[in-house]
Design a protein around this nucleic acid. Sequence first.
DNA 1: CGCTCAATTGACACCGTGTCAACTTTACAC
DNA 2: GTGTAAAGTTGACACGGTGTCAATTGAGCG
Lengths: 196, 196
Amino acid sequence: MMSTKKNYTRETILKAAWKILDESPRASSRMSDIAKEAGISRQAVYLHFPTRAELLIATARYVDEVYEIDERLRKSRNATTGKERLSAYIEAWGNYLPCVDCMASAFLAMPDDDDAMAAWNDRMAEVRDGCLAAIEALAADDDLTASYTVEQATDILWMLLSIQNWQLLTVKCGWSQADYVSHILEIAQNVLVKNC
Amino acid sequence: MMSTKKNYTRETILKAAWKILDESPRASSRMSDIAKEAGISRQAVYLHFPTRAELLIATARYVDEVYEIDERLRKSRNATTGKERLSAYIEAWGNYLPCVDCMASAFLAMPDDDDAMAAWNDRMAEVRDGCLAAIEALAADDDLTASYTVEQATDILWMLLSIQNWQLLTVKCGWSQADYVSHILEIAQNVLVKNC
DNA sequence: CGCTCAATTGACACCGTGTCAACTTTACAC
DNA sequence: GTGTAAAGTTGACACGGTGTCAATTGAGCG
């Protein structure tokens, strides 16, 4: 099969892009840098990805696959009570955030690219769906505080679990990953769970 | 005085930059766009500001001056009790955020410019100082929850009041400005104030 | 009048993205 | 083996945005 080789190169490029983004925290990840890392010519990258934005989108998907984030989040839905589900979701997503930090930075650095922003917003919308499911489970147990509607509580949880907040607390404030998860969990419970 | 004319043009440019950033929510604010808005040639902008980054930094300062944010925040320090001071600070800063949203977006869109990021980090550090002062006032009244150290509580308040959270709740979730302020205040009190 | 400084025009270098054409390599099919 | 098609290479180029430079214009002022 010819396509085998093509797929192999494609994955090589994705790995290279991931590595470059991961290593150069806030440096410029040019197409030429990624190509060099992948051991091919800059132009060859365009044989597999039409634009830089598409490459980043594909890389984000690839990272998701490698870390099996879908499965991680699905497991958090198995919790029986709403409270357990809330903490399982926060723990699952909160511990995934450091893995996608580099991808998030790359996307947020190109806010004027419509394709990239659409892909990013899709991903974030999925996270909000997860938040909504957790909040609804909490509401079903009548454990959701009366201060907020389900929508508002979802928005607040979504906000707490944003990558920007993770970056602020861990990168800028120097919190450990464990502190981040435990304190965000504490805040969420404090704000969203009834008689807590 | 010759410098009068120069200062006048300088301010014209700053106003133009402000307007362009404000109007084009996530469009490209090129030097040529700003120059056109100011009614001068693109090259003339460089007679007043060496780089685009410096222009943005100066524009941010100009916006601060116009809105007299320093004075607004200073007033929040006049509150007598720690609790009052916390709510005064949240209200003052929270209601200033919509004014600087466009500037924030501009800075966050150029994360690889060292000068711009340094300027932005300075501004954010000042906000954190304000948070720290409010938390210390709370601690002085023995109204700070025992769950966090002063530093941790400051970090949490800083996180809650970040521009990214404001953008998320108002722009993406559609919250009104009033809802934003009141709910962030409620969350902060819930999380940070003892027996609340 | 002559000086100075702001501003203008037009040109250019640099850099990164994306495209194109021509050529080479690889691998498989017959 | 030889032919063919796809993958990859090199070199060149257009485009857009930033920043620089030189030559020129124009207004204000002693």
